[in-house]
Computed example of a mutant assay.
Amino acid sequence: MNLTEQVLLAKQGDREAFIAVVKQVESSLYHTARSILKKEEDIADALQETILKAFKSLHSLREPQFFKTWMFRILINECNKIVANRSRNVLMDEFPIQLSLSPKDELIDLRDAVERLDEQQRLVIVLHYFEDMPLRQVAEILEISESAAKMRLSRARNNLMEKLHTFREGKIHYGSI
Protein backbone atom coordinates (compact mmCIF):
# COMPACT_ATOMS: atom_id res chain seq x y z
CA MET A 1 0.00 0.00 0.00
CA ASN A 2 1.45 3.37 -0.97
CA LEU A 3 1.60 6.52 1.15
CA THR A 4 -1.46 8.15 -0.47
CA GLU A 5 -3.63 5.09 0.17
CA GLN A 6 -2.47 4.95 3.80
CA VAL A 7 -3.23 8.67 4.23
CA LEU A 8 -6.75 8.09 2.88
CA LEU A 9 -7.25 5.30 5.44
CA ALA A 10 -5.88 7.53 8.19
CA LYS A 11 -8.28 10.32 7.18
CA GLN A 12 -11.11 7.81 7.63
CA GLY A 13 -10.02 7.24 11.24
CA ASP A 14 -7.59 4.32 10.90
CA ARG A 15 -5.02 5.01 13.64
CA GLU A 16 -2.68 2.25 12.45
CA ALA A 17 -2.57 3.83 9.00
CA PHE A 18 -1.70 7.19 10.57
CA ILE A 19 1.11 5.58 12.58
CA ALA A 20 2.39 3.92 9.40
CA VAL A 21 2.50 7.17 7.41
CA VAL A 22 4.21 9.02 10.27
CA LYS A 23 6.83 6.26 10.49
CA GLN A 24 7.53 6.70 6.78
CA VAL A 25 8.40 10.38 7.22
CA GLU A 26 9.71 10.50 10.81
CA SER A 27 13.40 10.23 9.91
CA SER A 28 13.12 13.07 7.39
CA LEU A 29 11.17 15.16 9.89
CA TYR A 30 13.80 14.53 12.56
CA HIS A 31 16.70 15.60 10.33
CA THR A 32 14.87 18.72 9.24
CA ALA A 33 14.02 19.66 12.83
CA ARG A 34 17.63 18.98 13.82
CA SER A 35 18.88 21.36 11.15
CA ILE A 36 16.74 24.13 12.64
CA LEU A 37 16.79 23.49 16.37
CA LYS A 38 20.02 21.61 17.24
CA LYS A 39 18.91 20.64 20.79
CA GLU A 40 17.44 17.16 21.18
CA GLU A 41 14.76 18.27 23.66
CA ASP A 42 13.59 21.02 21.28
CA ILE A 43 13.60 18.56 18.39
CA ALA A 44 11.51 16.10 20.40
CA ASP A 45 9.03 18.86 21.32
CA ALA A 46 8.72 19.98 17.70
CA LEU A 47 8.19 16.43 16.44
CA GLN A 48 5.62 15.67 19.12
CA GLU A 49 3.65 18.86 18.40
CA THR A 50 3.88 18.24 14.66
CA ILE A 51 2.51 14.72 14.93
CA LEU A 52 -0.23 15.79 17.34
CA LYS A 53 -1.33 18.69 15.13
CA ALA A 54 -1.23 16.49 12.04
CA PHE A 55 -3.38 13.87 13.76
CA LYS A 56 -5.91 16.43 14.97
CA SER A 57 -6.18 18.19 11.62
CA LEU A 58 -5.73 15.30 9.20
CA HIS A 59 -9.34 15.74 8.09
CA SER A 60 -8.38 19.17 6.71
CA LEU A 61 -5.73 17.74 4.35
CA ARG A 62 -7.32 18.17 0.92
CA GLU A 63 -4.73 16.37 -1.20
CA PRO A 64 -3.46 13.12 0.39
CA GLN A 65 -0.57 12.90 -2.09
CA PHE A 66 0.86 16.07 -0.47
CA PHE A 67 0.89 14.58 3.04
CA LYS A 68 4.69 14.76 3.31
CA THR A 69 4.77 18.40 2.19
CA TRP A 70 1.97 19.20 4.63
CA MET A 71 3.83 17.53 7.52
CA PHE A 72 7.03 19.44 6.72
CA ARG A 73 5.10 22.72 6.71
CA ILE A 74 3.65 21.93 10.15
CA LEU A 75 7.11 20.94 11.42
CA ILE A 76 8.79 24.11 10.16
CA ASN A 77 6.08 26.23 11.79
CA GLU A 78 6.57 24.37 15.09
CA CYS A 79 10.35 24.76 14.89
CA ASN A 80 9.97 28.48 14.22
CA LYS A 81 7.71 28.80 17.28
CA ILE A 82 10.31 27.09 19.45
CA VAL A 83 13.08 29.32 18.10
CA ALA A 84 10.96 32.42 18.72
CA ASN A 85 10.19 31.36 22.28
CA ARG A 86 13.75 30.35 23.10
CA SER A 87 15.63 32.57 25.47
CA ARG A 88 18.06 34.97 23.80
CA ASN A 89 20.60 34.47 26.58
CA VAL A 90 23.74 32.47 25.88
CA LEU A 91 24.86 30.33 28.78
CA MET A 92 28.57 30.54 29.50
CA ASP A 93 28.98 26.77 29.24
CA GLU A 94 27.66 26.94 25.66
CA PHE A 95 30.14 29.62 24.61
CA PRO A 96 33.41 28.28 23.19
CA ILE A 97 36.29 29.38 25.41
CA GLN A 98 38.99 28.47 22.95
CA LEU A 99 38.62 27.64 19.31
CA SER A 100 41.42 25.64 17.81
CA LEU A 101 41.71 23.49 14.76
CA SER A 102 43.03 19.99 15.12
CA PRO A 103 43.57 17.52 12.31
CA LYS A 104 40.11 16.13 13.16
CA ASP A 105 38.57 19.57 12.50
CA GLU A 106 40.00 19.59 9.00
CA LEU A 107 37.78 16.62 8.16
CA ILE A 108 34.63 18.62 8.79
CA ASP A 109 31.46 16.81 7.92
CA LEU A 110 29.30 18.29 5.20
CA ARG A 111 26.30 18.23 7.54
CA ASP A 112 28.25 20.30 10.07
CA ALA A 113 28.99 22.88 7.39
CA VAL A 114 25.34 22.91 6.35
CA GLU A 115 24.29 23.47 9.96
CA ARG A 116 26.43 26.62 10.03
CA LEU A 117 24.36 28.19 7.24
CA ASP A 118 21.56 30.60 8.15
CA GLU A 119 18.17 28.97 8.59
CA GLN A 120 16.68 29.84 5.18
CA GLN A 121 19.69 28.46 3.33
CA ARG A 122 20.05 25.46 5.62
CA LEU A 123 16.40 24.47 5.09
CA VAL A 124 16.59 24.61 1.31
CA ILE A 125 19.78 22.47 1.33
CA VAL A 126 18.32 19.92 3.78
CA LEU A 127 15.02 19.59 1.95
CA HIS A 128 16.49 19.49 -1.56
CA TYR A 129 19.64 17.43 -1.07
CA PHE A 130 19.23 15.48 2.17
CA GLU A 131 15.51 14.76 1.76
CA ASP A 132 15.73 14.54 -2.05
CA MET A 133 12.77 16.84 -2.68
CA PRO A 134 12.30 18.58 -6.02
CA LEU A 135 12.55 22.38 -5.95
CA ARG A 136 8.83 22.71 -6.61
CA GLN A 137 8.07 20.79 -3.41
CA VAL A 138 10.72 22.73 -1.44
CA ALA A 139 9.09 25.96 -2.60
CA GLU A 140 5.66 24.71 -1.47
CA ILE A 141 6.96 23.72 1.97
CA LEU A 142 8.75 27.03 2.47
CA GLU A 143 5.79 28.93 0.99
CA ILE A 144 7.93 30.75 -1.58
CA SER A 145 8.03 30.77 -5.38
CA GLU A 146 10.05 28.15 -7.22
CA SER A 147 12.40 30.86 -8.52
CA ALA A 148 12.98 32.07 -4.94
CA ALA A 149 13.78 28.49 -3.93
CA LYS A 150 16.28 28.24 -6.81
CA MET A 151 17.88 31.52 -5.72
CA ARG A 152 18.13 30.38 -2.09
CA LEU A 153 19.62 27.08 -3.19
CA SER A 154 22.20 28.86 -5.34
CA ARG A 155 23.16 31.22 -2.51
CA ALA A 156 23.27 28.33 -0.05
CA ARG A 157 25.62 26.34 -2.30
CA ASN A 158 27.88 29.36 -2.70
CA ASN A 159 27.95 29.99 1.05
CA LEU A 160 28.52 26.32 1.72
CA MET A 161 31.48 26.24 -0.64
CA GLU A 162 32.86 29.35 1.04
CA LYS A 163 32.46 27.81 4.50
CA LEU A 164 34.09 24.56 3.44
CA HIS A 165 36.98 26.53 1.92
CA THR A 166 37.29 28.59 5.13
CA PHE A 167 37.35 25.43 7.25
CA ARG A 168 40.04 23.88 5.08
CA GLU A 169 42.17 27.00 5.40
CA GLY A 170 41.80 26.87 9.18
CA LYS A 171 40.08 30.22 9.47
CA ILE A 172 37.02 30.18 11.66
CA HIS A 173 35.28 33.45 12.40
CA TYR A 174 33.02 33.75 15.45
CA GLY A 175 30.35 35.28 13.20
CA SER A 176 30.17 32.09 11.13
CA ILE A 177 29.65 29.77 14.10
Rank of each mutant, 00 (worst) to 15 (best):
163 K>Q: 14
143 E>T: 12
123 L>K: 00
160 L>C: 05
119 E>F: 04
153 L>C: 13
155 R>L: 11
108 I>D: 10
138 V>F: 05
154 S>D: 13
158 N>I: 01
171 K>T: 11
119 E>A: 07
153 L>Y: 03
148 A>Y: 12
146 E>R: 04
150 K>E: 15
157 R>Q: 08
123 L>Y: 00
145 S>M: 10
157 R>E: 11
110 L>R: 07
163 K>N: 13
150 K>C: 13
121 Q>N: 10
138 V>Y: 03
104 K>L: 05
115 E>W: 15
119 E>I: 07
112 D>E: 02
120 Q>A: 09
107 L>C: 09
147 S>V: 02
156 A>R: 09
140 E>Q: 15
102 S>T: 05
151 M>L: 15
171 K>V: 04
123 L>F: 01
153 L>V: 05
122 R>E: 11
122 R>I: 04
157 R>C: 04
163 K>V: 08
141 I>M: 01
174 Y>D: 11
122 R>W: 06
151 M>E: 15
148 A>V: 07
166 T>V: 10
129 Y>I: 06
140 E>G: 13
118 D>L: 01
119 E>H: 05
170 G>R: 13
134 P>W: 01
174 Y>Q: 11
115 E>D: 15
162 E>M: 02
115 E>I: 07
114 V>Y: 10
141 I>P: 08
104 K>D: 10
106 E>A: 10
156 A>Q: 09
104 K>E: 04
132 D>S: 08
130 F>T: 03
142 L>Y: 00
150 K>P: 07
127 L>K: 10
112 D>I: 05
112 D>V: 02
117 L>H: 03
129 Y>A: 02
123 L>Q: 01
131 E>A: 06
150 K>T: 07
103 P>I: 10
149 A>G: 13
105 D>Y: 10
170 G>Y: 11
104 K>A: 06
170 G>N: 14
135 L>G: 06
121 Q>K: 05
